[in-house]
Design a protein around this nucleic acid. Structure first.
Lengths: 349, 349
DNA sequence: GTGAAAGCGCTAACAT
DNA sequence: ATGTTAGCGCTTTCAC
């Protein structure tokens, strides 16, 4: 038996079948743990497969089964700490369940998001995990998926649609807590730096901010709302705007840490003391928040876990374990992490 | 012509062929820009394809062509700023060339790296882009790829092998420059915080450090070398070790920013002044470096660009544009970014 | 418990 | 320039 082909030809189930004097069908069954296959035969098949260096041809299999074991992921940008954590979580789960991830970036534009969706559609992903771009208005570009019944799960930046599940944290409540905290620290004129209001995450955070104010009898002042793209540069610009406010605000709640940190630094540079003059709260618990001085109070946003949950939910649905059609929203735990940037009553180190 | 099937059946080239009264082969050619196809026919095919909502079946195509248009990427971890930037660059290039990326994390272990490689091999990626795990000793787990002639390109953490191209920066020179800079600033006892010496990046940086010392007539002292895993925690531990040194060092060159920053902060907390008592240089130009006070002098490491170059090189090779078999190493530009943490002669703000 | 046979959708010789 | 044909490797009815 000199079958150890050192050459480059691929071993197929036919080769195994021939070698074992059985049919390809049985080999296929053996390799796929089909119940109706003799234990002995199965063992023989497995051994021979290993010996011959067989590897299953995913394409042939996919072609037959009409399933790809591939999950599409579309995110605004890959290069933020939060997104990396999310993807990392997804990869972990997908990998351990035999799924592959293919990843696309929308670069915050609806156009690229649509193009990416089309690519994913053409590569026939089994399901889609999406966090929406900054300027996406509708989800028409996903209708191919919905029409075909391909599951579509949103995370973080979600879209409310009866046919899609969303995985989020309670942004409203988190923002309310953040704002409450600032108020408790004595802040009365709190600036809120927010993002595009099309996106639930920013709209909900603004909502929570407003609710906290009114709940504690403070008046909402739209002049204190700064809508930006939440970039580092936007933080610097926001600082400029804040400095020109009269009277000076005594608190800032920013919808993300990168922006909060650059704003904080710019204000410090301008001689404003944090938290004494202005107390700060950010959002995300980015590593930056533990480096800036004073350390930034922020909302811990479990990115890795969100990635795991999103991927696991999708995979469970695909495997028929759990049906997500009845699940509208999954809410993950988040919590306020209090650090020096917001502590005013003697607590700061 | 009532062919606008609202149903769920997939449209194939046969359907298009039937509708147009031509052969499936011609349809295939038309859709693939085959030169020998009438312009008119081609246009007709394209229109009909669009009208009928045709989408190409990648599996059938892959099965035939034995090419997957998929690139495997294996990285130690997804959740660092540097890696995110790399992946982001790869995605951009891959996407615009019609390639998909599938991504695996080794979580810094050779075992998971091997498992990931196996998965990629089984999904028949056209090529592999790899940055090695912390403890990988050899590349036996990639030999399947080499045997089959599947191109394997290393980036950042490379392995010197005649059959693989590596994409790096000149770590030796960058480290030499960093060390020179510290010496110019008057430092004479410079600690170097490094990583596992199996990895070129850390070994080369140590090499550059040593070379700079000897070049300027300073003696190398192995007590000043701290080998760590370069994590945030390791930075804190390194700070502890540094504080106990007698005499106290006057400079620290760390092989990555996250570690440098946490070390710097821990030393500051202990009452040591940076840069006055100890000057600091990091590596990577992580966003953290612009937030820590004083801002960290560091080596700008073009992650996004490295991702682009790696992906483009691989794709060019796959497309036959460029053959990488003769290319051993591609070196990207990097440069020292001087900030407050290392400036001692009155320059600091 | 196993085999025979058809076909998933596409592409590439080879013919015309 | 287009058509014919075979087959990529697998799974799955339907037989037995």
């Amino acid at each position: 038996m000199e079958l150890l082909s050192t050459g480059s030809k691929e071993v197929t189930i036919y080769d195994i079948a021939r070698e074992l004097n059985i049919s390809p069908a049985t080999v296929s069954r053996g390799l796929n743990d089909h119940p109706a296959v003799n234990k002995e035969t199965k063992k023989k098949i497995e051994n021979m497969a290993k010996e011959m260096g067989y590897r299953s041809n995913t394409f042939a299999s996919n072609l037959r089964r009409q399933r790809t074991h591939t999950i599409g992921v579309i995110v605004p940008r890959l290069n933020s700490y939060f997104m990396s954590a999310v993807i990392s979580g997804m990869e972990k789960v997908a990998n351990s369940s035999g799924f592959n991830l293919i990843i696309g970036q929308s670069l915050e534009t609806a156009t690229k998001e649509a193009a990416s969706a089309q690519t994913m559609f053409n590569s026939r992903v089994d399901g889609l995990l999406v966090s929406l771009a900054y300027d996406t208005d509708n989800i028409d570009h996903f209708k191919d998926f919905l029409k075909k019944g391909i599951p579509l799960i949103f995370f973080d930046r979600v879209f409310n649609h009866s046919q899609c599940t969303g995985i989020i944290i309670d942004n409203f409540k988190a923002a309310q807590e953040a704002t409450n905290h600032l108020i408790e620290q004595g802040c009365r004129r709190i600036v809120h730096v927010t993002g595009n209001q099309k996106r639930n995450v920013y709209a909900d955070r603004l909502g929570g901010y407003k609710y906290a104010l009114s709940n504690l009898g403070l008046e909402f002042n739209s002049n204190l709302i700064i809508e930006t793209d939440l970039s580092v540069e936007a933080g610097v610009a926001a600082a400029d705007q804040i400095r020109r406010m009269n009277p000076l605000p005594d608190g800032v709640f920013a919808a993300n840490d990168a922006c909060a940190v650059s704003c904080l630094l710019a204000l410090k540079q301008a001689g404003i003391s944090v938290p004494h003059d202005i107390a700060f709260v950010g959002f995300n618990n980015d590593p930056l928040s533990k480096v800036v001085e004073p350390n930034l109070t922020t909302v811990n946003y479990p990115g890795h876990e969100m990635g795991e949950v999103a991927a696991q939910t999708l995979i469970n649905h695909l495997n028929g374990t759990v049906n997500i059609n009845n699940t509208n929203t999954i809410i993950l735990r988040s919590e306020l992490v209090i650090r020096g940037s917001s502590i005013r009553n003697g607590g700061a180190k």
